[in-house]
Each structure stands twice: as C-alpha cells, then as structure tokens.
Design a protein around this nucleic acid. Structure first.
Lengths: 228, 228
DNA sequence: CTTATTGAATTGGTTGCACCAATATTGACT
DNA sequence: AGTCAATATTGGTGCAACCAATTCAATAAG
C-alpha cells in the first residue's frame, strides 16, 4: 500500500490561521495599506505558535496578499479589495488536496476532449490510439502501463486538433500521477484501464460524440474509485 | 512620511533556500515522486535553521512543487519545469489560431465551472459576484469593464472552491484578452455581457446547476459571436 | 520459511524562548 | 519648537524539545 493515499486530510495549523486571518480582514473591514496586528499578538489570539503563524503569513505574502516590513508590520497588499477577497476565497491547498483538485479538473475536461476527438478525429490519430491499445494488451509492467496510459490520454487530446488542449492535457496527466506510483501493478486495474480505453476508441471510430463522452466519464469514475 | 519606498530588498533566508532547493532538484536530477533529504539534514546543508527551511518548503508546497507527508518525507510533486500552468502562461497571444483554441478551452471549462459554483457556492462568493455586477452596471469605461469581466469569471472559478481551477481560469482569461483590448467600448457588448452575467448569477443563487451551465454556455456563445 | 506483530527509529508538525535587525516612538537636551 | 540619541516595538532567525504519523527491522507466530 503506497498509493497517493488520501487520509481524512488533517488540517495544518497554518491553514487554520490563514482562514482566521481572512475572517479578521473581512470583519475589521481591512483594505490595502492597512496593517495586521503584530505577530506575537496574532499568535496569542489564534492560539498557535509564532512559527505556525509565520508560515501562514509567508504563504499569504507569496500569494501577494500581504507584504512584511521588518520593524514595522505586516501590510495588506492586494491592489484592490476584489483581488484580495478572491485570492483569500480559495487559499491554501496542500499536496493531497491538490491531487483531488487535479482529478476534478480531469473530470471536467477529458469527457469533452473525447467528444471533440470523436467529432474531429482523423485516421492517423485513431491509428495511434489503437497502437497504444495493442501495447497495453501486451505488457503487464506497471511502469510501462502507466506510461501508456498517459500516452493514451495525451494522444486523445491531440486528436482534438487543438494544440492548447493537447499541451494542457500533458501537464494535467503529469501533475496527477508521480511516475513511480505502482497503481498499475494491480491486475484488476490493468483490465479496467484497457477495457475503458477500448470502449472510448470504439466510440471515436464510430464518430459517436455522445458515446465517447459517456465512456470517458465512466472510465474516469472507475479509475477514481480504484485510486481512492 | 509614509512613502511606499522599497529598499534594495534584502533577500530573506527562506528565499535563498527556495533557490537552493531548485538547484538541488536540477543537479540531482530529481523528478516527481522522488523525495528531498529530511528537513533537519537540509537545514544543516544550507546552513539555516529548520524554521527558515520550513518556510521555504511551505511556499513550495503551496505552489504545488512539493507535497509533505508527515512521518515520511517531502516529495516532489510536479517538476519545476512542467508546471501545470506553463502552457498558457508562456504562450500568451500568438496569433488568432491560438485565440480560437483558448476560446474552445473556455467553452469546455466555464459552463462546468458555473455548474460547480452553483453546487458549491457559499454566500460570500455570491456576494462578491453581485458586487461585480453592480460595478459593471455603473461604469461604461472600456478598460474598467474588461477588468470587471475578468473579475467575474475568475470569481466564479473561485466559487468552485478548487484553487487549481481558479489558477487555470486566471491564466485563460489573461491569455485570451490582452490588457489593452477595447472590445468593451462597444455599447452592445456591454449590455450582452451584463445580461449574461446576471442570468448566470441568478442560476447560481438558486443552486440551479444545469441552469448555470446552460446560461454560461449561451453567454460564451454570444460573446464569441460578437468577437468573430 | 513465510507472515504478523510490535516496538524502536525516522521524519514532518508544533511549540517556546532567546536573540538579532530594522523601524517607530519617546523624551531629554539645546 | 526642533534635534537626536536612547528605548520600545516589530519582523527575522536560530536552537532545542516534544508531538504525531510513518517506516522499518527485530521478533514471534503459523
């Protein structure tokens, strides 16, 4: 067991602090130029160590929400209150949650990529997809299969004819699964993956736009359930 | 005197550490899934306290470069070279073909962002959206309106609660329209934009998931037709 | 010999305190 | 009043200890 295991995601101290700072900014109606209370005092108020407090401040600094002046104070930076609130509205996502976020992005994009591929797909793209399916059926090496899975989804994006979508798909894939993960060592997953890919390619070959979308949606759902 | 004058900006310890970590990743040719040396050891190597080292690691975490697992280690998430947003960040504005591609990306994503916002949207997000509508109705300055349009779509992405989607939306917006574009000087477009936004917010307020999706789709279609 | 178990060692998470460095404030002196 | 030096305040850094989750190896059980 060494997936990208997802635990209940315990909230880190600095994350709680960021949330509290956001509330404070809203309640005290602070805007650009205003200063936060001193760190020692904030740590006291929020009941955390100054270290944890400073982690939160660093993050907000790096996001452009705050700026620190040694000897003076921490100042609210964002150009407008709108920028400030928007940034604070989504703040903070630790590694594990990020994986879920990227998965959500994938759920949004991939079914429509499949649909577009079915609509636009040229012969050469379909051939490439089928070649990948072949290889996928002939190996059982986990590393190789993960690679082929990436290839499949990227090729599908390429089949849309939209270079931007292709590049984005590449980055999504590579962000989602670290190369060494062994989730493909599981025989059951191998079958699920291959079956799903086959159905998708079939739909694309038949130029079945809605079918391709549905199959991809189902495929992602299945993969997701085996991962989490 | 309260002038905003900034000194030569003395480099903070954590900034130096971030740079050194990046160099280390490069030199040791580390990729996603690999782990960094333990914090105590890194602090020793870089000659800083663990506190400063951890500030650096936190920042890299928030940027999605690292992910931490207590009891295990700090893992490289996405290589510095292959950041998720790179695609759109770099390319900004290369011909009309690119513009069309990004528009297509927008057609794929935004309706689902609206749907998610309707499903997840908290009160504060809806308030922000309505505040933007107000401003939009009160000005007719082209530059200002373009800015508000961006704010609207970015706030909507923020309302999904997914920071990755928010970042992506930011990049899409900025890639699609150069800051100076005056397409909002056209009175007709102003009306179309405001009307569309209102309908979308209404649907979100009513938690009408399908309605939000449909309204956004229609909105994008209208905007597209006025642009091309 | 293989598989569980358990307990020590490792590693990130948090806290507290002390001290440094830059800035702000006070107050004595002219 | 104005100047300027002493003092207090505030962010920046370091050290050391302890907590909590994980890893890993020694050991016991089958």
């Amino acid at each position: 067991m060494q997936d990208t295991a997802q635990k209940p995601a315990p909230e880190r101290a600095y994350e709680a602090v960021i949330a509290k700072i956001r509330v404070m900014i809203e309640e005290k109606n602070l805007g650009p130029g205003d200063t936060l209370p001193p760190e020692r005092q904030l740590a006291e108020i929020f009941n955390v160590s100054r270290h944890s407090l400073r982690e939160a401040i660093r993050v907000l600094q790096e996001k452009g929400v705050l700026s620190a002046r040694q000897g003076s104070g921490n100042y609210i930076q964002s150009a407008t209150r709108g920028d400030l609130m928007r940034t604070l509205a989504v703040t903070t996502n630790t590694g594990s949650r990020r994986a879920l976020e990227i998965f959500q992005l994938r759920e949004i994009m991939e079914p429509q990529l499949a649909a577009l591929a079915a609509e636009m797909g040229e012969a050469r793209h379909i051939e490439m997809l089928e070649a990948i399916l072949d290889k996928q059926g002939q190996t059982s090496d986990g590393i190789e299969l993960r690679k082929l899975d990436h290839e499949f989804h990227e090729t599908l994006a390429a089949a849309t004819g939209n270079a931007t979508l292709y590049e984005l798909a590449q980055n999504i894939n590579r962000s989602l699964l670290p190369p060494k993960t062994k989730i493909y060592d599981n025989r059951e997953r191998q079958v699920i993956s291959l079956e799903g890919h086959k159905r998708i390619v079939d739909a694309i070959k038949n130029k079945d736009v809605e079918g391709a979308k549905a199959e991809m949606r189902a495929h992602i759902a299945r993969v997701k359930s085996t991962v989490f």
